[in-house]
């Protein structure tokens, strides 16, 4: 009896086991399918997120360009650099002309030489004042450009942060900025034509370009001859108005940006920004995306 009972019990256990195993085996495929589809979805999501880094880079480049443009626009605000270049060139002409008049008076009209001397001294003093103002303008223009750039940076930097379990994008960092000029750009001032001696002196000294519009070259100290050689006449780079067309402020290629020589006035800006990015899943890696934006200031206006 006991053997029969055992056999019956065993058969019951076996059928229960079989049912359970059937349930388990059919369920395992369903679970597996769900797991595989889930993994596929997650891997695609991660793939798309990393593909999105390419767009983040483009966005960062656009932000760097915007910041550089905001700064560059401020540099020549109300044509202050263009006007300074023009004032320096005209003052230089006045000093040269004053020296000529004094020499002529001493030779022909010694009685009024004192008057010519006063005029010359006045123009020389103006040259010194202008030089001081030029230095001041350089400080003010750079400071205002920096403020404009930082304001733009504050506007955009809050829109970047993105924290996903597998990827982190932090807020961008301002790595640095510079003021400079655009390559192959001379000054906005045409060689003044009223005094032929000065014109020929300038061409002789290689102060002016000879092709097309005769513009004073960029970043020169156009020293005058002999007694007035102690004065400083620094003319900076700035796009010249051509046929009344003023060059608008614009984004330029980083390759077309160059530094200014000495303490000359700037006419372009360059901004470098970093965007820290990192991975969250698997190996914890972090890196910085880097973008450089450059922009040119508005060109000089036509002089009346």
């Amino acid at each position: 009896m006991s053997v029969l009972n055992n056999i019956q019990r065993n058969s019951k256990i076996r059928s229960r086991c079989n049912r359970r195993q059937l349930r388990q085996s059919s369920g395992s495929v369903l679970i597996l399918a769900m797991v595989v589809i889930g993994l596929l979805a997650v891997s695609l999501l991660i793939g798309y997120s990393y593909g999105g880094l390419f767009f983040e880079h483009n966005r960062l480049q656009a932000s760097a360009n915007e910041m550089a443009l905001a700064a560059a626009r401020k540099l020549n605000d109300k044509d202050r650099i263009g006007q300074m270049n023009n004032m320096i060139a005209r003052n230089r002409q006045i000093v040269f002309s004053g020296r000529q008049q004094l020499d002529e008076c001493k030779e022909k009209y010694p009685g009024i030489a004192w008057l010519a001397e006063d005029l010359l001294d006045e123009s020389r003093d103006s040259a010194k004042t202008l030089e001081a103002q030029r230095k001041q303008l350089s400080i003010v223009a750079k400071k205002e450009a920096r403020l404009a750039m930082e304001k733009k940076f504050e506007e955009i930097n809050k829109t970047y942060a993105m924290y996903l379990p597998w990827m982190k994008v932090e807020e961008p960092l301002l790595a640095g900025w510079q003021c400079g000029r655009v390559v192959n750009t001379e000054s906005n001032v045409e060689v003044l034509k009223n005094i032929p001696e000065l014109e020929s002196f300038d061409l002789e000294q290689n102060y002016a370009s000879t092709a097309g519009m005769k513009l004073y070259k960029h970043d020169i100290d156009a020293k005058l001859p002999s007694d007035d050689s102690d004065l400083t006449f620094k003319i900076s780079a700035l796009s010249a108005p051509v046929m009344k067309t003023v060059a608008p402020a614009r984004i330029i290629l980083n390759a077309n940006y160059d530094t200014v020589i000495g303490d000359n006035l700037p006419s372009a800006c360059r901004v470098k920004v970093w965007l820290p990015v990192g991975t969250g899943l698997g190996p914890n890696a972090s890196s910085k995306m880097s973008c450089i934006g450059a922009a040119s200031a508005t060109g000089g206006s036509t002089q009346q």
Partner: peptide, 13 residues
């Protein structure tokens, strides 16, 4: 296009 200035050498845009 960005650059709408003229070339001072040729006077062309």
């Amino acid at each position: 296009w960005e650059n709408f200035s003229r070339n001072p050498i040729t006077s062309q845009y």
